[in-house]
Amino acid sequence: MGELRFIFHQIRSNPLSIAGIILILVFGLIALLAPVLAPVPPDSPDPYWIPRYGFSPTPQLPSSEHILGTTQGQYDLFYGVIWGTRTAFRVGIQVIIAALIIGIILGSIAGYFGGIIDEIIMRITDIFFSFPFLVLAAALAVAFGPSLDSAIRAFIVVSWPPYARLIRGDILAVREEGYVEAARAVGCSHSRIIGRHILPNAIYPTLIMASLDIGAIVLVVSALSFLGLGAPEGYADWGQLTAFSRNWIVGPPGNPLRYWYTVTIPGLFILFFVLGWNLLGDAFRDILDPRQRRR
């Protein structure tokens, strides 16, 4: 109970944490209430496909029918950003959880057992580090075939190495602690020592980093979609919506801001989503990191 109160105190004392929590809560609500906010047209095969109203390449201005107007190809922008929130959550959380699991398992094995096993696993992670992150992800996404799932898979493959490296370092430190030797001396098995004694003492920095990374992952997956390597055309995804606006950033001569909303609205969604996760990550750090907490 005291612990819970301490957490609330910690959050309340930092306005930025509150901002982060509110942002993510608002996005969570949008994702949850998507069918209410943007009702799915009755003839739609899949709610994630943005309904389109014609084939004209010129975006339409906001009207009573399309609150935020339509983008290039007459996709409804409002529908797109609302359902795109679900896509953003799915992408961020799937990638982070899968990358965390892979990173933690490999990093723990490498750090705990050391020796040749450590050498093999860490050299493999080094191979991943030797490629530029985004280029490797893009190449893999192409290789897997352009779809949102393959973009997610590509990002899982490229984003576990930092976690593996981070947790290995922390495990190397914790491994030498007296209580690990003591656990061995009372007859604990290796898996029990790792799971019960080492990870709880070593995992926090990794979890904090992961929470900070969710926003970044959404950002880069959006970038991939922007390049046409992520979601297929017409799928509700913020990156793709910004891609649609590429030709309309500057409007017709004499009225350069005519189509401002096509780029600004999906951009703002991405901005606030990433900002929210980053602030929330800071809040997590305040709560979890034993070196930062306690007055």
Binding site: E177, Y179, A185
Partner: peptide
């Protein structure tokens, strides 16, 4: 050995502070 450790042979460590898991 895991069966014997802790059951038949047990050890008291030098630094009690270090031998207990803080969590």
């Amino acid at each position: 050995l895991q069966r014997i450790r802790g059951r038949e042979i047990a050890m008291i460590f030098q630094e009690p502070g270090a031998a207990l898991d803080p969590v």
